[in-house]
Design a protein around this nucleic acid. Structure first.
Lengths: 185, 185
DNA sequence: GAAATATGTCTCAAATATGTGACATACTAC
DNA sequence: GTAGTATGTCACATATTTGAGACATATTTC
């Protein structure tokens, strides 16, 4: 059974993702605990958000590292990382939004995130494919990185909104991402 | 010279886009007016947000209709609509986020937006291209629609974050979108 | 089943955000 | 320059959100 702490974090991620100003009352309700209990685990709002960031970052990184290592081929690696991120759903979306919104006080953390193992692995894969002219050489790597995140977010959102069936979504995402960077598998 | 009302709306769009719970104090400051003045133009927070929605919707729709009509060719129409949306920048991003976040009370408006002229024009363009097998037939139209919005948002964000130069951004967006839907120009 | 731990309920104080009135000042039109 | 309009400043009432204490109740552990 999920710990109370974990339940609260899951609830907070769901809430804050839509609306970063949801009240702690609502988060507690969503988690099925009282607000008083929430305060026993998290001193204040910032503490809660900080905890969400950390946990989600760990969760996403772990999933993507596993995906990275699941196949020796660079293209399969990238595909599986895409799938893993989509599978993370709300977790991934939360991290992405948080860093989009990040202000100066978050810059250190952002740098930390950016210099992260997973990201550099991903960068190297793309760099090599571009060097080998397997993908479009007009596009810059930062653009491709942003695009990768967007396609993932689109896939997550498309399912949540009911626009696209869950099974279709990850396939569409891969087809679209491949095409977008000019990759012929 | 921009009217005070317009200044406030512009500021509100910028603020609420990052953080929908920014205080009215901050919006006023961003607009360079006092909070008291803000309240003279907008009864309350809801009134302000409602006004932002309306104005941004009008602004985006107008820009995209002009783009639509700027060229007889369907592909150029789509490309120019993409460019127009990117050009709208914060305006477009605000509208997109608002509707992603929309709850039940917004559903009517959302439907209104969805049945909108611009969207149906866009849908028909894509539908025709797909029927003519000019673009990938595996992908569904709702997916392509979501993707279109994401690519636009990516282009806007990539410039704002400094990752990609402004001139590159819209070209990258078009290259990527074309590729993503399998369009050969 | 007793002790320890976790959670809920009720309560309250402090902080923050909001809406508005009263009046001063700046700007515009004529 | 004067009337009229727009805006700023200050003050204040109200509502909301937050954080925590005191104590009851439930759950776990031994």
């Amino acid at each position: 059974m999920e710990s109370t702490r974990a339940k609260i974090i899951t609830a907070a991620v769901r809430c804050f993702r839509n609306n970063p100003s949801d009240t702690l009352e609502k988060v507690a309700e969503e988690a099925g605990v009282s607000r008083r209990t929430l305060h026993r685990y998290f001193e204040n709002r910032d503490d809660l958000i900080e905890s969400c960031k950390n946990e989600m970052l760990v969760s996403c990184n772990k999933a993507m590292i596993i995906a990275y290592e699941s196949d020796p081929g660079p293209i399969k690696k990238i595909r599986n990382m895409l799938f893993a991120a989509i599978e993370q759903g709300a977790n991934y979306a939360f991290v992405k939004r948080i860093y989009e919104r990040s202000n100066f006080s978050d810059l250190d953390r952002k740098k930390e995130f950016e210099s992260d193992d997973v990201k550099s692995k991903w960068f190297n894969l793309i760099k090599d494919l571009q060097k080998a002219e397997r993908i479009n050489t007009e596009l810059t790597i930062p653009w491709i990185f942003n695009l990768f995140g967007s396609v993932i977010e689109t896939a997550i959102y498309a399912v949540e909104s009911g626009d696209v069936a869950k099974n279709d979504s990850r396939n569409f995402a891969w087809i679209s991402f491949k095409g977008a960077i000019g990759l012929n598998e």
